[in-house]
Nucleic acid binder design. Structure first.
Lengths: 138, 138
DNA sequence: TAATTAACCTACTATCCCAATATGTTTATA
DNA sequence: TATAAACATATTGGGATAGTAGGTTAATTA
């Protein structure tokens, strides 16, 4: 991490869908307009979410997207790890990172690990339902 | 943030200099060799640290770099904010970010703010002296 | 069954940032 | 005065981000 538009948009879409669960399937066009996000770009993001069973897509007239689970069952962390690939604060901690020869006596690595843990724990403690309840800042 | 080599290298150099305080001025070449970092690239990083009075540079034969303060007076956070420019987890929180019109009722902004606070507080709680004492991971 | 709607799929592009390199200039010491 | 070393400026290659563009498949509904 740093969280890019991909992750930020994904979260906003999930909150949007959660707030419109009554509408059954919501078309991409509607979400994009409501959230002011480019349709085509959003499409590429939702594709990932569908592939990972976060959303279901229904084709054809009357189709659109829908959550597969209730909002409180999605953690922010799990969504971001999907769209961002990795939340590690340094390259050294990326999955499949070639562990450098200095790992054994690196003075800073323990700190990065703790930071990584801190961030992930925080983001895993928040659900989409929490974001819905989040009071608008004044 | 995500922390790039710039910030990671800067921290490693400061720890290195802290561990060799007795040597007075340490030439770039020596640090670069010891830390296995490209000389020229490291130079550009140290320039920032000198400009911000983190280090003093002395020119000419017998010159090099030296800490301006004892190691326990540098927080990791302050160093990273210098070299990385900003530690904000999302662009929305960057300094001088054009605050988007949805700020007022953005469902996710409060979360990003808390995350930002969490990260900065953690990194500000660690000093270069702490990193020196950090036991090598086995 | 034909028109329409909307998801799905593949490929391409402009821009920015990271990480580094290259070349030179100034300053101090021995 | 030769040498060592910081300081300065410009350029480059690569990869990721943030999108565009155009076409294909599937489900409604008139």
């Amino acid at each position: 991490m740093r969280i890019s538009t991909k992750g930020r948009y994904a979260l906003r879409v999930l909150v949007d869908l959660a707030e419109h669960q009554a509408d059954d399937f919501v078309p991409l066009k509607v979400i994009a307009t409501r959230q002011q996000i480019s349709e085509k770009y959003l499409e590429s993001i939702l594709k990932v979410l569908v592939r990972n069973k976060i959303l279901t897509g229904r084709r054809g007239k009357g189709g659109g997207y829908r959550l597969t689970k209730p909002p409180e069952q999605y953690t922010v962390g799990s969504i971001l790890r999907l769209t961002e690939g990795d939340l590690a604060p340094v390259a050294c901690l990326d999955q499949g990172a070639d562990n450098c020869p200095r790992t054994a006596n690196c003075r800073t690595l323990p700190m990065w690990r703790k930071l990584d843990e801190l961030v992930n724990n925080y983001l895993d403690s928040i659900t989409i339902a929490d974001l819905m309840e989040s009071p608008p800042a004044k």
